[in-house]
Amino acid sequence: MSAPIVDVNVNLSRWPLRRLRGDETAELAAMLRAAGVAEAWAGSFDGLLHKDIAGVNARLAAECRERGGGLLVPFGSVNPALPDWEEDLRRCAEEHRMAGIRLHPAYHGYKLEDPAFLKLLTLAAERRLVVELALAMEDERMMHPLLRVPAVDAAPLAAAVKETPGLRLVLLNALKGLRGEALARIVEAGEVYVEISMLEGAGCVGSLLKEVPASRVLFGSHAPLFYIESALLKLKESPLGEAELRAIREEHARRLSRRSP
């Protein structure tokens, strides 16, 4: 029997542009469980565009607790471009007891060298929160013409990571454009992980493992926006050993989350 899966990239609530199978929490939890997922780190689509981030995070925590079937782990949104975002961070850590936070610079309109972003990384690291940084949500060619979101320049990340001791950073939806030396530079800068939801190419997981250490690769599906079968089948497409598979499916993420408050 396959090892259980920790999926580090799912979202609750409504994608702004389309209804999705699994955009009701209980339904998503059931879909994930049927796919072999034992734990899923959940952000909220509401965190992309809502300005009442505190409300988004309170709902996210309640949904995970009440309808997550013991499987969903909330990762609250923090938008460092909003006033008093520090309070949102405090609530994520102290009130909701979250293991981490999720950031959406493309949707919140800041760059990765902005002082507020760098301060947020520092404060999150001090609170031992895992930081999930979503570099994209969808193919920029496919965006709604009235909701075009600029691509995030990941280049400043390597310096930001080096300057933030204790930071544990997971890059979400990053691997469509960020590969090769640019990716390696960021991963080598500190404790940085990537997940496979937007990874592409025949035998893509095997190719990725030639660029970054296996210990930095996590399972992520981007469900329910993506079919969860995509990430599942990628693990089959490349010839991976049992130990490697078990580590990507579960162990690396478990080790990462165990060190959270």
Binding site: E200, G201, A202, Y227, E237
Partner: peptide, 18 residues
């Protein structure tokens, strides 16, 4: 659209569809 795309991600569109 392999090899630019993953066979896996594309098969998922069918195998994962309701």
């Amino acid at each position: 659209d392999a090899g630019g795309r993953s066979f896996a991600s594309q098969l998922a569109k069918v195998l994962g569809a309701a």
